[in-house]
Design a protein around this nucleic acid. Structure first.
Lengths: 124, 124
DNA sequence: CCTCTAGGTTGACAGATTTCAAAACAGCGT
DNA sequence: ACGCTGTTTTGAAATCTGTCAACCTAGAGG
């Protein structure tokens, strides 16, 4: 019943910072990282993520009315964001508060870092 | 017949650089950006992207054998990457070469930048 | 204990995604 | 012209996703 479902993505299990462009990512790492990108690959979740990331923390009750969607649908998207390890939630009395997991956020950023131009001399 | 299908994502149409965490992203921008994350949200495409981004350019014939998937399937994933605006392709004789679109890559990275702790005093 | 509100879970369904086999298309070499 | 190899397109099957209505759980307040 632990509502604090352990994130599917274990950040410590990931070679956490070599940029995608530094060297070909191996299949295992791709399997771990892809779900994080996938979680951001839906407009609703991307907005949700942005709203959460823009403040220290935010109540579901402030998230839901920003969309033209039912409560359960928002709840579903928040769950995916949680399972991807991107956000954390905490119940405090009546309300549930969400905040980002900075490590996850940082990792994603690191993955997309541009590492200059590697020299695999193809083009000429 | 133009195989150089115009990317679905028009990079110039995007408020191209304010980090997700800077302020809540509006619905329109989310609609434009989400497909890019979505494209990276599959392990195969993420690896493909990584392989392409790790070198100046790479031939499909070097991409395909890295996976346990049929040629058409790889081709399909490459098409999605192209449509997301993340990569470009060019046929040169018998082979087709892929390379990243640096602008798109940079934009994605910018989106995930951590902008310290913003003070959007909603909470207190 | 009862009721009210905030959120999450279940079940169902339309539409999208992943994948492959088969077929089409594009250059190259003979 | 013909066949060969590399890549994309088409068509179809199995699976996954986004969404809602209905229902359940958690805490607040009588």
């Amino acid at each position: 019943m632990s509502k604090q479902a352990l994130p599917v993505v274990d950040l410590n299990a990931v070679a956490c910072c070599s940029p995608i462009a530094a060297s070909p990512m191996d299949a295992d790492q791709a399997t771990v990282v892809a779900p994080m990108f996938k979680a951001l690959g839906d407009p609703v979740r991307l907005r949700l993520m942005s709203m959460i990331a823009s403040v220290p923390e935010i109540c579901v009750c402030d998230l839901t009315p920003a969309f033209d969607l039912s409560g359960p649908t928002i709840s579903h998207h928040l769950k995916l964001l949680r399972e991807a390890g991107l956000v954390d939630s905490e119940r405090r009395g009546t309300w549930v508060w969400y905040r980002v997991r900075p490590e996850a956020f940082r990792q994603l950023g690191a993955l997309l870092e541009v590492s200059s131009a590697p020299a695999a001399g193809g083009t000429a």
